[in-house]
Lab assay of single mutants.
Amino acid sequence: EYSEEELKTHISKGTLGKFTVPMLKEACRAYGLKSGLKKQELLEALTKHFQD
């Protein structure tokens, strides 16, 4: 599980793409985000969540 700060850091540095799909799905579930099946959809959901 990833902390909010850790995820925000990866988003701001542009390194969230280094996460694997299972890692991204886990992060989306942890924050109650609707997650797609594609890596890009997962990245967009997390990025949008933490930028709002």
Score class of each variant (00 low, 15 high):
Ser12Asn: 12
His10Asn: 05
Phe50Ala: 04
Lys18Tyr: 05
His49Ala: 05
Lys34Asp: 13
Thr47Met: 10
Ser35Asn: 03
Val21Asp: 01
Lys39Leu: 04
Glu44Ile: 06
Lys39Ser: 02
Lys13Gly: 08
Gly32Pro: 00
Leu37Asp: 14
Gly14Gln: 09
Ile11Ala: 07
Lys8His: 05
Asp52Asn: 15
Gly32Lys: 11
Lys34Ile: 08
Glu1Ala: 08
Phe50Met: 07
Gln40Ile: 12
Gln51Phe: 07
Leu46Asn: 01
Leu16Gln: 02
Gln40His: 14
Tyr2Thr: 08
Glu4His: 07
Thr20Val: 00
Ser12Lys: 15
Glu5Arg: 09
Cys28Tyr: 00
Leu33Lys: 00
Lys48Ala: 13
Lys34Glu: 13
Lys38Asn: 09
Glu41Trp: 01
Ile11Gln: 00
Lys25Gln: 14
Gln40Phe: 05
Arg29Trp: 07
Gly17Gln: 14
Lys48Glu: 14
Ser3Gln: 07
Leu43Tyr: 02
Ser35Met: 06
Phe19Asp: 03
Lys34Cys: 12
Arg29Phe: 09
Glu4Asp: 06
Cys28Ala: 08
Glu5Pro: 06
Glu5Phe: 10
Gly32Thr: 05
Gly14His: 01
Ala45Lys: 06
His10Leu: 03
Leu37His: 15
Thr20Leu: 00
Ile11Tyr: 14
Lys25Ser: 10
Asp52Ser: 04
Lys8Thr: 09
Lys39His: 12
Thr20Asn: 08
His10Gln: 09
Ala27Thr: 06
Gly17Cys: 14
Phe50Arg: 00
Ile11Phe: 04
Lys13Glu: 14
Glu1Lys: 15
Ala30Val: 14
Lys34Val: 10
Lys38Pro: 08
Glu44Phe: 09
Thr9Cys: 11
Glu26Ile: 11
Lys8Arg: 13
Ile11Met: 07
Lys25Val: 13
Lys38Trp: 01
Lys13His: 12
Gln51Lys: 08
Thr47Asn: 04
Lys39Asp: 00
Leu33Glu: 03
Lys13Pro: 04
Leu37Arg: 13
Lys38Phe: 03
Thr47Gln: 03
Lys25Trp: 08
Phe19His: 04
Thr47Trp: 03
Ile11Ser: 02
Thr15Asp: 06
Gly17Phe: 07
Gly32Arg: 07
Gln51Thr: 07
Leu37Val: 15
Leu33Phe: 02
Lys25Leu: 08
Glu44Trp: 08
His49Gly: 02
Val21Leu: 10
Lys13Cys: 13
Glu4Met: 09
Leu24His: 00
Ala45Ile: 04
Leu7Gly: 00
Gln51Cys: 02
Thr20Trp: 00
Thr15Cys: 02
Leu24Pro: 02
Ser35Ile: 13
